[in-house]
C-alpha cells in the first residue's frame, strides 16, 4: 500500500471543493440551527436556488453571469421569506417540516419535464461557467510539494476558500455582537427574549435569510466547479450531510462547520483509499468485501464515528462541554 499517495490524495480533499461546499452549507445551518435554534432541514433547496440562479440566467436566458449571481442570492432571500413568513410564528417543528418539503419541491420542480425548457429537466443545465473561468487569473498549474493543482481547480479553491473565510468572519463578527446575543437568547427561550422587548420574529427571519444566502453560495460554488447544475445533487441527503458536519465540528462555534467539513472529506477519501489498498493487498479477504463495497463501507464507518462522537463528545470537536452539561440539568 502506498501510504504516501493515500495521504496526499486525502489531504487534497481536506481543502477540496467538496469541503468548501459543505463548509458553506454548514455555516449557513450553524447560523440558523446552531445560534438561533431554527431547524432548517431544507438547506439543499437554498443551495439549489443558488446554483439554478446562475445556470438559468446564463444558459437559459443568455444573460450576464453577474446578474446570475444576484438572482441566485435574491432567490435564496425570497425562498427564506416564503418559508419563514408562515412558520416562524409557530413552534420550531413547523419550520422543520416545511423546509424539508420545500427542498424536495425545489428539486422535483427542477427535474420535472414540465420545466425542462427553463431548468433543463433531470439532466440539469450546463455551459454557464465560462464567464467564471474567464476571470481566472491563474495561467499555469500550481505546485506545492507533492501537490499539484490545475488552474481551473485552483481558481475554484481560491474563490471558495475566500468565500468560506468571509462567511466565517461575518458569523464571528455577528455572534459577538448584541445581534448575535439576541439570536442565542432566542435559541434558549424565545418567550423570555420577547418579554425583554425584542422582535423575535424579525430576528428569526434575519437568521433564516442569512443562513439561506450562505447556503446559496454553496450551491453556486458547486455548480460552477462541476460546470453543471444537476437537481439531484440537492436531495435531502445534502442537508443531512451538512448537519452531520456541523455537529461533528461543533454547533454554535465559529470554526466548527469548516473544521467538520474538512475532516469529513479527508476521512471519506482516506477510508476509501485505505480500504481499496487493503483489498488489493488482500489484507481484507474478498469474501468479506471487494472494491465495489468501499463506497458503502465508508458511509458505515463514518456513521459509527458520528455515533461514537455523540456519545463521548456530544458538543462536537470545538464545542464547549459545559454547555452540553447544562442540558442535563
Amino acid at each position: 500500500m502506498d501510504w504516501g499517495n493515500i495521504l496526499e490524495l486525502s489531504l487534497r480533499e481536506l481543502i477540496g471543493v467538496q469541503a468548501i461546499v459543505f463548509a458553506l452549507a454548514a455555516i449557513g445551518i450553524n447560523v440558523q440551527f446552531g445560534y438561533t435554534g431554527l431547524l432548517n432541514f431544507g438547506q439543499a433547496a437554498f443551495a439549489a436556488v443558488g446554483g439554478y440562479g446562475i445556470a438559468v440566467i446564463v444558459t437559459t436566458y443568455d444573460m450576464s453571469f453577474w446578474l446570475g449571481l444576484v438572482v441566485g442570492i435574491v432567490g435564496a432571500i425570497v425562498l427564506a421569506l416564503l418559508l419563514g413568513i408562515p412558520t416562524l410564528r409557530l413552534r420550531a417543528d413547523y419550520l422543520a417540516i416545511v423546509t424539508i418539503a420545500a427542498s424536495e419541491i425545489v428539486r422535483l420542480v427542477g427535474r420535472s419535464a414540465w420545466g425542462r425548457d427553463v431548468f433543463g429537466g433531470s439532466d440539469g443545465i450546463t455551459g454557464f461557467s465560462n464567464a467564471f473561468y474567464d476571470l481566472n487569473p491563474f495561467t499555469e498549474p500550481f505546485e506545492f510539494g507533492p501537490f499539484q493543482f490545475r488552474e481551473r481547480v485552483l481558481w475554484v479553491l481560491v474563490v471558495g476558500w475566500v468565500l468560506v473565510a468571509v462567511c466565517t468572519l461575518v458569523v464571528w463578527l455577528l455572534m459577538r455582537s448584541p445581534w448575535g446575543r439576541v439570536l442565542k437568547g432566542i435559541r434558549e427561550d424565545e418567550d423570555a427574549v420577547r418579554s425583554l422587548g425584542k422582535n423575535v420574529y424579525a430576528y428569526k427571519m434575519q437568521s433564516l435569510v442569512l443562513g439561506g444566502v450562505i447556503g446559496a453560495l454553496a450551491g453556486m460554488v458547486y455548480s460552477l466547479f462541476q460546470g453543471a447544475m444537476q437537481p439531484d445533487v440537492y436531495a435531502t441527503n445534502f442537508t443531512f450531510f451538512a448537519y452531520a458536519i456541523l455537529i461533528l465540528g461543533g454547533a454554535a462555534t465559529v470554526f466548527g462547520p469548516v473544521l467538520g467539513a474538512a475532516i469529513v472529506w479527508f476521512a471519506f477519501q482516506f477510508i476509501d483509499l485505505a480500504l481499496r489498498g487493503a483489498i488489493q493487498q488482500e489484507y481484507i479477504p474478498s469474501w468479506l468485501m471487494d472494491a465495489n463495497d468501499t463506497g458503502a463501507v465508508r458511509f458505515m464507518l463514518t456513521g459509527i464515528v458520528l455515533v461514537l462522537l455523540l456519545v463521548f463528545r456530544p458538543q462536537g470537536i470545538l464545542g464547549d462541554r459545559r454547555e452540553i452539561a447544562l442540558d442535563a440539568r
Binding site: R181, K184, G185, E188, D189, D191, A192, V193, S195, R329
Partner: peptide, 11 residues
C-alpha cells in the same frame, strides 16, 4: 417575568 423561570441557560 415567568412562573417557570426563563434564565437563558447557555448565556
Amino acid at each position: 417575568t415567568f412562573q417557570l423561570t426563563k434564565a437563558l441557560s447557555k448565556l
